[in-house]
Write a protein that binds this DNA or RNA. Sequence first.
DNA 1: ATATCCATTTTTGTATACATTTTTAACTAA
DNA 2: TTAGTTAAAAATGTATACAAAAATGGATAT
Lengths: 208, 208
Amino acid sequence: MDIIQSIKEDILNNHLPRGIPLRQAYLSTRYGVSRIPIRDALQALKSEGWLVLHGKAGVMIPDLNWQEAEDLYLMRAELECLLFEMAFECIHDKDVAKARLFLLELDQEYVSLVSRGELNWCFHSALYMPANRPTLLRVVEGLNKQAVRYLGFQFGPLGYQAKSQDQHEQLIALIEARDKNAALILLRQHIEKAGVLLTGYLKKLASG
Amino acid sequence: MDIIQSIKEDILNNHLPRGIPLRQAYLSTRYGVSRIPIRDALQALKSEGWLVLHGKAGVMIPDLNWQEAEDLYLMRAELECLLFEMAFECIHDKDVAKARLFLLELDQEYVSLVSRGELNWCFHSALYMPANRPTLLRVVEGLNKQAVRYLGFQFGPLGYQAKSQDQHEQLIALIEARDKNAALILLRQHIEKAGVLLTGYLKKLASG
DNA sequence: ATATCCATTTTTGTATACATTTTTAACTAA
DNA sequence: TTAGTTAAAAATGTATACAAAAATGGATAT
C-alpha cells in the first residue's frame, strides 16, 4: 500500500499521536522509507486537510470538531445538489450501472475506512460526471476527501452505514424513474442528515 | 522571492511553456536550486490547480478555459455570499478598517498580478473572517487562489480593475450603512459579473 | 519566582548520487 | 506502411549526507 494511504489509515484508527508534531524521522522509520517520500506524503496530506502546520516547522493531526464537519457537509449539500441537477438529464444507463458496482463493493464486510470513503465518492461521482463540469467535480471531490477524516464516527458509534446504503439504493431507483425533483430532495437529505447526525455527535463529545 | 511565487508569476506572464511537460531539471537550473525544493513547489502548485499531471510522469501548465472559469466563479458566488451573510452581523469597524487597508494597496500602480490576486483575497476575506467559519473560509480561499490564474485577462484585455475597485468601495459603504440585503446583492453581482465577463471573453478567444 | 538570553540539540530544508520508471525511437515482422 | 517490440535515453523517485533553522533547556539577571 502507498504511504499516503497508510498514514490516512493510521490517522483514522488513532495509531498516530494527535495534537503533537509528527516528526519526519519517526514516520521515516515507521514506514521504512527515507524522509523524501515522507515529505512528499506530508505535503499531499496537508493540502487535503489531514494534517496542519504545527508552529513554524512540523505538522500535526488536527482535532476533529463539529464546526468543520458542519461546514464540510453544508458545502457538500450545496455543491453536490447543484452538480447533480446539472447532470441529471445526462445520466444514462451505463452511468447508473457503474454506480451500482461501487454500491456492491460498499456492501462487502471487510473494507477499510479509507477505502469506504473512496468507494462512497466513486458512487456519488459516477452520478455527477455526466454533468461534464470537471472543475466543480474536482472541488466537490476535495470536500469528500476531507470528510473521510470523520468516517470513523459514521461507521463506528453512529452506525450510519446501513441507512446510507438504503438511501443510495433509493437514489438509483429515483434516477431510473426519471424523477428529478424527488432525487434532488433525497440527495440533499442524504447529505444533510449525515452532517446533522455527525455534527450533533461531535458537539456532545465536546461538551461532555 | 520564494520559488512557488516565482513559478506563479512566470506562468501568469507566459514565461513558461504551456501544454508540454515542465521538466524538474529545467526548473532546477532556471531557479538555481536543486530538484528537491522544485518537487515540493510542483506538488503545492498541483494541489492549487496551477499545474496538472502530464501522462504518468511530469506536470504541465493547464490551458485556461471558459468552463473552468465559469465553475470557479459560480462556486465563488454561492459560497462567498453564504459566508458573507454569516459574517455580516459580526463585521465591526476594525474589520472594515482592515479591508480598507488592502483596498489602498490594490490602488498602487506597480503590484504584480499574483500580489493583486492575494490582495483581492485579503480584502474579501477580511469581510468573511468575522463569520468565524474557518473551514468554509479555507475552501473559498482555495477557489480564489485558483481564480488568480485568470487574472491576466481581467487586468489585461478586460480592464476590469477600476470597476472592481468601485464595487469594493460601494460594498464597504453598504456595510457601514448596515444594509445587509443590498450588500449581499452587490457582492453576488460583483463576483458573477466578473465571471460572466471573463467567461465570455474566453469563449470568444476559443471560437475565433 | 519569572523572564530573557544564549548554547546545545533536535528537526527540518537542500544538495548530490543512485535506483527505478517512463518515454523515445529504432527495428522487426506482418 | 503500420503495428508491435525492445533497447537506449531521459526523466522521475528515493536514499544518504550535509546545511540551515527551530526548539529545548539551563544559566543569569531582574
